[in-house]
Nucleic acid binder design. Structure first.
Lengths: 254, 254
DNA sequence: TCGCGGCCTTGATCGAGATCAATCCGCCGG
DNA sequence: CCGGCGGATTGATCTCGATCAAGGCCGCGA
């Protein structure tokens, strides 16, 4: 059910119950009074401008965040200023988990476009977790999903050639857009080619060349940030480098 | 079936209170009655022979595990049999988290040597989490640590040259051994060169060559699986590819 | 309107590391 | 004690993608 007027949007932002994302998000499987209590621990949404940091690497941890609208990138930066993009985060996705270990953010999160997030102050959240086993379980599930996704990304970084990385990246974005009830074939990349390159462990030039190559192959239509996937089937096929190449077949390790 | 004398040994092994690892492990910061209750939910330790699977990819999830002794490797295998090693797990480390998302293991865990694990049946653990906020917090901390470690590994896989990968890997192992009150300079690699190569996203040959090169440089002493670190300082220096090379300096992304 | 500064693309060249190939070594079983 | 096998090493060559270099495109501000 679509509530149409923009007027409702502000209202929507406050209540998990009326949030279109609730089934993908922390409240999944939680309702009634429990949901109301979860709602109450969510602090006023923060709005971020493009490029604005949600939290900085090394900064004091005090809350987890769920993307509400827009998109974020997370990255780490080493002593000499080298940046590694860790991920892109769409609405419904949780960020900040890597900070619980020692109360300091191990990474930085920045808005890729004008975005809003729900802030979950950790002390309040903790209280609630103690009282709501279902929330506790759901949080673990969400975190587990994140870990599993990171494992997938290790496969990509480990031994996939550039083209496969690109294909897998685009499919992943496409799937996530589709879940958000958007068109999975029309991507509006909010991140730069540099971000994509860093995320995939490639050089910008390679990313650029791959976009052209995929366009020439009739798989994509590329116009700056606007990507249309013309042939999901071919893109899909491209994800598994079906050949022997790319190594480490079963049994080779051990 | 256990004879009574072995039973005593098991009894000893059963108790978190008397476990040397407790401070690194789930029980950290938990004591008294709570600790006893945690103890009770830990099922009989499982012992694994070298190469034996603790759980298989796709298998039904029902418990988390903490390595008790020995070491494990986790990996995923794609449709065409390609293997990507995700990590090596030493005593005190938690495995199985990626299965909570959908009740099925997204990866496989195998013993690298004769090993034992503490099994935490998830339904019982859940019960306990509801009753012990401190355990709940500690579990999240441990999981967060794992996520942060994975982020570090993405940096490695993303843009580090082979030699840096190797150095970082060895330092990480050394640190983890040291925390276990073993000598951090004497590593006894339980994994094969293939495993290391897969984990680091390199070819076996490259790993082998790096070992020889590091030995020639006087940094390591290598004798098959037995590695001695002669110059921690040089190894440390090698971890940050201090030069400009390795790209993506600050500001380049975005 | 123009010019400037990002980002992005395209082309040319280079090199780290993969792949191919040939031993070597340690271990286990007969 | 020998033979074979799987893991590890070493060497030769090749290749993918990085790097270097040179514009092009777009948006924005003067």
């Amino acid at each position: 059910m679509e509530t149409s007027s923009v007027l409702d949007l502000n209202q929507l932002r406050r209540s998990c119950a009326s949030c279109a994302l609730s089934e993908l998000c922390l409240p999944a499987g939680i309702d009634g009074d429990d949901l109301r209590r979860l709602d109450d621990t969510i602090r006023d949404k923060r709005t971020l401008d493009r490029g604005e940091a949600l939290f900085r690497q090394g900064g004091q941890f005090h809350a987890l965040y769920v993307v509400r609208s827009g998109s974020l990138r997370t990255f780490v930066e080493d002593a000499s200023g080298n940046v590694q993009v860790l991920g892109f985060h769409l609405p419904g996705e949780l960020v900040g988990v890597d900070a619980l270990a020692n109360d300091h953010h191990a990474s930085q999160a920045e808005a890729l476009e004008r975005s809003s997030v729900c802030e979950l102050p950790y002390d309040r959240l903790n209280l609630l977790l103690g009282q709501m086993p279902s929330l506790q379980r759901q949080l673990m599930r969400v975190v587990s999903r994140e870990v599993a996704a990171e494992h997938q990304h290790m496969v990509v970084m480990g031994r996939q050639p550039a083209q496969e990385r690109m294909a897998i990246f685009l499919r992943s974005l496409s799937d996530r857009y589709a879940r958000l009830q958007r068109d999975g074939d029309t991507l509006n990349l909010s991140m730069s080619r540099y971000d994509i390159a860093s995320y995939l462990g490639l050089a910008v030039e390679t990313v650029s060349r791959l976009f052209t190559r995929l366009e020439e192959a009739g798989i994509l239509e590329v116009s700056r940030k606007a990507i249309t996937i013309r042939r999901q089937d071919l893109l899909e096929a491209m994800c598994s480098n079906s050949g022997t190449r790319g190594g480490n077949r079963k049994g080779e390790a051990l």
